[in-house]
């Protein structure tokens, strides 16, 4: 799968660099799609999530306490942003310490399910982030993607094409 890791200009700040992913030649990032898909049915929740991410980027950093950890597989860093008690949206991301996160998609979590595996949309979004996390990890091991010296940014080949392998 071809994808590009892009930095979200409005959300990134001095406390945390916030990225998302554009799949193939889509116009929008996974996070843009999440916002667009849920803006009609859950406008307040989407607004809250965007504002929390803004605060994380500019004022607080991606502190562990703001995330539901271990939403993916052991060690892949896939997690979800904590939502308010009555809210239903799950927004998935990959967290690399407090200085860097990659936002994915998500969707509403039906009240009758306990885990994302029980919902087709959440399963698709969570599994995509798990796949991206593994792919990034592999490319880091190969030296294709690496950390900036201060550990706040990803550098290297961030526009990934299957043909290059």
């Amino acid at each position: 799968m071809n994808y590009e890791i892009v930095e979200l200009d409005e959300l990134s700040g001095s406390k945390s660099t916030i990225y998302s992913v554009i799949i193939e030649d889509e116009e929008y990032t996974l996070f843009d799609s999440f916002v667009e898909e849920n803006s009609v049915d859950h406008p307040d929740e989407v607004k809250l999530i965007v504002n929390k991410l803004y605060q994380i980027g500019h004022n607080f950093g991606a502190r562990e306490q703001f995330f539901k950890l271990a939403e993916g597989k052991p060690g892949d860093g896939v997690c979800a942003l904590y939502d308010e008690e009555d809210n239903k949206l799950r927004q998935y991301c990959i967290r690399y310490g407090s200085a860097l996160i990659i936002l994915g998609g998500g969707g509403p979590k039906p009240p009758q399910i306990r885990a994302w595996q029980q919902d087709d949309k959440l399963k698709k979004e969570a599994e995509l982030m798990i796949w991206i996390s593994r792919d990034i990890m592999k490319r880091m091991q190969d030296g294709e993607i690496y950390w900036s010296k201060d550990g706040t940014r990803l550098l290297g080949n961030l526009k990934i094409s299957d043909n290059e392998e």
């Binding site: 979200l8 200009d9 409005e10 959300l11 550098l155």
Partner: peptide
């Protein structure tokens, strides 16, 4: 390649 990520501005955000 030491390029940082491309910056993306989101109209939705």
């Amino acid at each position: 390649n030491s390029k940082p990520a491309r910056k993306h501005s989101s109209a939705f955000v």
